[in-house]
Nucleic acid binder design. Sequence first.
RNA 1: GGCGGCAUAGCCAAGUGGUAAGGCACGGGUCUGCAAAACCCUUAUCCCCCGGUUCGAAUCCGGGUGCCGCCUCCA
Length: 471
Amino acid sequence: MTLKVYNSLTRQKEIFKPIEEGKVKMYVCGPTVYNYIHIGNARPAVAFDTVRRYLEYIGYDVLYVSNFTDVDDRLINASKERGESVLDIAERFIGAYKEDVHALHVKEADIHPRATETMDEIILFIERLIEKGYAYESGGDVYFRTKRFNGYGKLSQQSIDELKVGARIEIGEHKEDPLDFTLWKTAKPGEIKWESPWGEGRPGWHIECSAMVEKYLGNTIDIHAGGQDLAFPHHENEIAQSEALHDETMANYWMHNGYIRINNEKMSKSLGNVILVHDLVRQYDPNVVRFFIQTVHYRHPINFSDDLLKGAEQAFDRLRTTYNNLLHRLEVSADLLDAETTDAYKETIAELKARFIKEMDDDFNTANAISVLFDAAKEANKVMQADNSSRDLLQRFIDLFDELTGVLGFELKQAVLLDEEIEQLIERREAARKTRDFQTADSIRDALKEKGIVLEDTPQGVRWKRALVNE
RNA sequence: GGCGGCAUAGCCAAGUGGUAAGGCACGGGUCUGCAAAACCCUUAUCCCCCGGUUCGAAUCCGGGUGCCGCCUCCA
């Protein structure tokens, strides 16, 4: 089994080979924390969390770093508008970010550096770029001398000449060339600022990532990831800064996730269709949201709409039902299956797992990996269909689901808590059924359905499950 | 203008040279007191269109059409 990763830099799938055997150093561009995150922020968080989980699953020791941009123009604007300090706003939305991605089962990064806490390294980075002639101070600002860096545009396939056409110098900027970009920006009166060799100011947007990658991961890392829209100019500029300074490749693999659309339109503030994770996870089970995101390959665009999410909810429920039926059967079943059939299923389980790995090895094809889960559900259901199952086999299917959904980051187990009142209703219904008083039994079943509890009468006894939230 | 992506059944979505995964929805059957869940069967002679390469293409090449994105803040 060989893991292949699509590398945005070379535009092809490549065999994954870490710098250091058994270890992966990855950096994922995080959010600017001036607001609650929307699903556009959630997609990379989920996609690359799955990349991380899979890498760990196949035995790598992953060092995962993801930044918080806690000072920039948008934060400064928000600060002015709300009369709240930049740092307070950042602090609040970092908290909100963690809460939101936690709901989506995104594992916490090993290191979550903040721009404001990396200021020394940022300034040092810029000083060294100036020393090497790749940057210059001008009017209190510092700019990167873009044309000096050979290979500018290699990530986004842009040529310097073409880029020049669209580039321009804003009023108040003091660039030598329109393509140059800001490394350090002089503070205007009243703005948050830091001392530097070039006066009081703040870093440009791109430099923090270069400085953080160097500080926490080194000159060359394995994977650098983010949204497709970051490829240009953000990642392009990161490459220019880091590679100009180090004369070494910044990242061996660049990964970019596709865009999000809402009802087939671009998600944007002007269209007023921005979906906040905060709201979405209250409308849908976060497991369903995470499942849904992964039914589409991470590099492809994904469309969000109520119909699609409801469809995902239905699909997800199939897996959840099977899984919880397995748990139920394990409680009530005896070992009855013959050894030959049991062995055949063991073989099947091994094959399913191998297929899952094969799909994930192919550039993290979660859509196909999920289809393996459905096939596993079908096999598990067959085992349960034959009303003589084997506890060992049931447990193996449960383990399989636990293992594979653990990689994809969602849970199939439903909460087992039931009100005493509901327990009693179920018992009363059972009693009624025994006396063939189906009228009473059915009315209790209807009443429970009203409460969101769906009953299933199986040969092994009654099972209950929660009804879908959005029907 | 430059760069890039996408187009597969009613819907969602994999597949990128060997004869169309998976899910939702639909229909038939089995099971059930009735349901629910589940299982079995059925569901694209065909992958936007037109040419070409090939023994063979949804997959490669050329030309169209449509949709979308980046080039400015953006995940």
